[in-house]
Simulated scan of single mutants.
Amino acid sequence: MNKRKILLVLGLSAAIVSLGQSLYVPLLPDLQRDLHTSLSLVNLTVTLFTVAMAVMQVVLGPVVDRSGRKRILIPGMIIYVLATIGCMFSFSIDMLLVFRVIQGIGAAAVPLVAATMIGDVFEGEKRAESMATYQMILGISPAVGPLIGGLIGSVSGYTGAFGFAAASAVLIMFTALFLLPETMPTISTTTGKRKQLGLKAFGRIFQSKTGRVLLLSGFVLYDLFYTFIVFLPTILASQYNLGAATIGVFSLVLMAFNLVGSKLSGKLQTKIGSVKSLFWVSFFIVASLVIFVFAAQLSLITLLIALMLTGFVSGLAMPVMPTLLSAEFVQERATAMGVYNFVRYLGMAAAPMIGSILYPIGGTALLIGVTAAFVGVTAMATRQLLPRKSEQTA
């Protein structure tokens, strides 16, 4: 079993499927015109896809734990491909909305199974490094998706963008079919019997101190990251009167440094451990956010440097949570990953809602300051997971 090849296939599978979220975003105005619909309904096609993905994480988690990883992955990708083709040939907004929901349902299986299989295949330090590499590959998709969609859409419209998404998903699906093994643990390491999974699995996750802290950390971290994605254009336009093209460069810088941080996260976890990594990186994130508040007022250069720092340290944190969840919940691994994915999607969704309340009241200082406070709370919560001195010397 070539573990590196498995990691690459899993990372590319999740990245290609996640193109369904970002690939056609630049083409929303064209979509509105071609389907003779409203902007709100066009935006709903993005929302419904994300909601379907989020909800199905929780639904599919126990199924993956009971039935197998690959056995759920391939049907999920088939559903995604068929729904994407349906989106491609949709001639009305109602038809597109239906296929976007189905597309999200199929897509949900891929990141869930990918993170779970990485937890199955790799152990210890290799698991941390592999999760970091996976997070980096997955992060490429939202960075380049709008660019690819814009290039394809300028030639063949939104149908071409969906066609590209379907074709690339078919290629990676057949690659996964032939190269990925089934990795589900079938025997409990403690009882020698296969566990009966269901609602008890959810209870174990929420009753665990580790589970609660990691879910809180995931929610806050992705709320933080999407706060920058959503409000960075507003900050740059209002304070420095930048145009869309320049704002796009700043957003790309944020994504790029986040990917670098994600890749280096594995090395950091290997050196000091995953829990210590999350604890100390959380404080560095708070520091970077405080720096950003002041730097944003000074000059565009200081804002850019603070943005690089924030992207980098948040990238260091992102692979830590799935790494720790994989180690803590072995028999319930997919269920834990599903709950975690659902919670981080909630964090993404909460960012624009919370920000729309805070930013009009207090601008950048209040928006980023409150976010820093949230991260500070998670840092103190993470402290509970650090081994005590007596445990370290035992």
Rank of each mutant, 00 (worst) to 15 (best):
L307D: 02
E123N: 12
V230M: 05
A295D: 00
V320K: 03
T393K: 15
I140G: 11
V375A: 10
V253W: 06
I140H: 06
L242S: 06
Q239S: 12
I172D: 01
T270S: 14
G243I: 10
A349E: 03
F312I: 13
K193N: 09
F49C: 04
T183N: 09
F231R: 08
V25R: 08
F329P: 01
M337Y: 07
Y24I: 11
I105K: 14
G145S: 12
L177E: 03
S188P: 01
R212F: 02
T186Y: 08
L73S: 11
I78P: 02
F284R: 07
M353N: 13
T270V: 11
A373K: 05
C87R: 11
P29F: 05
V42D: 04
F49Q: 07
P322T: 10
T382I: 02
R333K: 14
V113E: 07
L8V: 13
G104P: 03
L48P: 01
L197Y: 06
G376I: 07
L73A: 01
I102E: 10
K193A: 13
K193R: 15
L242H: 06
M348Q: 15
Q384H: 14
F283Y: 11
I78A: 13
I6R: 04
T159R: 13
L307C: 03
R100W: 03
A176W: 05
F257N: 04
I102V: 15
M380K: 11
K267Q: 15
L151G: 05
A349P: 01
A14Q: 12
S156E: 10
R388L: 09
G266T: 08
E328S: 10
L177W: 14
A327W: 04
Q21W: 12
L252I: 10
L254E: 03
T183M: 02
E391N: 11
L180Q: 08
T302I: 07
L289S: 08
F329M: 06
K276L: 06
P26V: 08
D223N: 15
P387F: 00
G362H: 09
T371H: 11
F294A: 06
T210I: 06
L214D: 07
L259Y: 01
N2G: 09
Q384R: 15
G376V: 04
N43E: 11
F342C: 09
S18Y: 09
S238T: 13
K276D: 10
V339C: 06
M255K: 12
V155K: 10
P181L: 03
V377K: 10
L386S: 03
F202D: 09
A317C: 01
A14C: 08
V144S: 00
K389V: 14
L252F: 15
K267V: 14
D120F: 00
L254K: 04
N43A: 03
T191K: 08
T183L: 04
H36A: 14
A107S: 13
T190N: 13
E391T: 11
T210K: 14
A143H: 08
F342P: 02
A114F: 00
M56H: 10
L316R: 12
S13L: 04
I140P: 01
G203T: 13
V64M: 06
L41N: 10
T133D: 02
L224P: 01
M173V: 02
S130T: 13
R69P: 00
L147V: 15
G273N: 07
